[in-house]
Simulated scan of single mutants.
Amino acid sequence: MSFLTRFFRPFTQTATMAQAAAMPKPLDIPEGAEKAVVAAGCFWGVEHFYRKFFQGKGLLDARVGYIGGDQANPSYKNVCSGKTGHAEATLIVYDPKEVTYHELIEFFYKMHDPTTLNSQGPDRGTQYRSGIFYFNEEQEKVAREVTRKANEQWWDGKIVTEILPAKEWWDAEQYHQLYLNNNPLGYECPSHYLRKFPDLK
């Protein structure tokens, strides 16, 4: 695969029918662990980045899937049509004793461009929107506070990230899980990189 190929998301998948139909095992959340869900464009890169920077530092698991839509059990093809209302997203399971929700959301604003509406890099469509999906009042409070500070200190007031209560989560098909681990030369959105911003004040 050429260097340029990495920057163009494939429109078709080469997965077999069996691979496409296979679904991940149900998520096992250890006692004391918490969940976070973010959407920042192509979910392959988002999941990969969180694993890269938080594995062994509080991250217990991460998987990709769909959230924010109104269709039950959506498929990748359905979501890519833009008709289901879902965003490609990453569900993070973490140990709050080792990493805080604040740190995960601050990282979110460093690793993608939250100023582009319904797009990320060359990917276009509502499924690639920037979003934070909270599970409780405390997460909402933190998400809004970090967003406010990031907007003021980093992104010149241009953030368009939506902050919404988490609706039902749907795991993406198995071949999407750990995609860049299994396909190291696979597509990576060029907007997914860690910005060298100072810590938020």
Rank of each mutant, 00 (worst) to 15 (best):
F3D: 11
L4W: 01
L4E: 08
T5G: 09
R9L: 07
P10N: 11
F11P: 06
Q13W: 13
T14Y: 06
A15N: 15
A18T: 14
A18D: 13
Q19R: 09
A20Y: 15
A20E: 15
M23H: 13
L27G: 08
L27H: 01
I29V: 15
P30Y: 11
E31G: 06
G32L: 04
E34V: 08
A36D: 05
A36C: 08
A36S: 06
V38H: 01
G41C: 10
G41K: 09
G41A: 09
F43C: 08
G45M: 08
E47K: 00
E47M: 04
H48C: 02
K52R: 05
F54W: 03
F54I: 11
Q55L: 10
G56Q: 02
K57R: 12
G58P: 02
L59P: 04
D61I: 03
R63Q: 14
V64Y: 00
Y66S: 03
I67S: 07
A72R: 07
N73H: 01
Y76C: 09
N78T: 06
V79A: 09
C80G: 06
C80F: 00
G82N: 11
K83N: 12
T84Y: 00
A89R: 06
L91R: 02
I92M: 09
K97E: 12
E98Q: 15
E98A: 05
V99A: 00
H102F: 03
H102A: 10
E103Q: 15
I105G: 01
E106D: 10
F107M: 10
K110T: 07
H112W: 04
D113P: 14
T115S: 10
T116M: 14
L117M: 13
L117I: 11
N118H: 10
G125W: 02
T126N: 05
T126L: 01
R129C: 09
R129H: 04
R129W: 03
S130I: 04
F133H: 00
Y134P: 06
Y134F: 14
F135N: 10
N136Q: 10
Q139H: 05
E140T: 00
E140G: 03
E145A: 14
T147A: 10
R148E: 14
N151I: 07
W154H: 11
W154R: 07
W155P: 04
K158Q: 10
I159K: 04
V160W: 00
E162R: 04
P165L: 09
A166G: 13
A166T: 02
A172K: 07
L178R: 15
N181R: 06
N183G: 06
P184I: 11
L185E: 12
L185Q: 14
Y187Q: 08
C189D: 15
P190I: 11
S191R: 02
Y193N: 04
Y193W: 11
Y193R: 11
L194F: 03
K196Q: 15
K201Q: 15
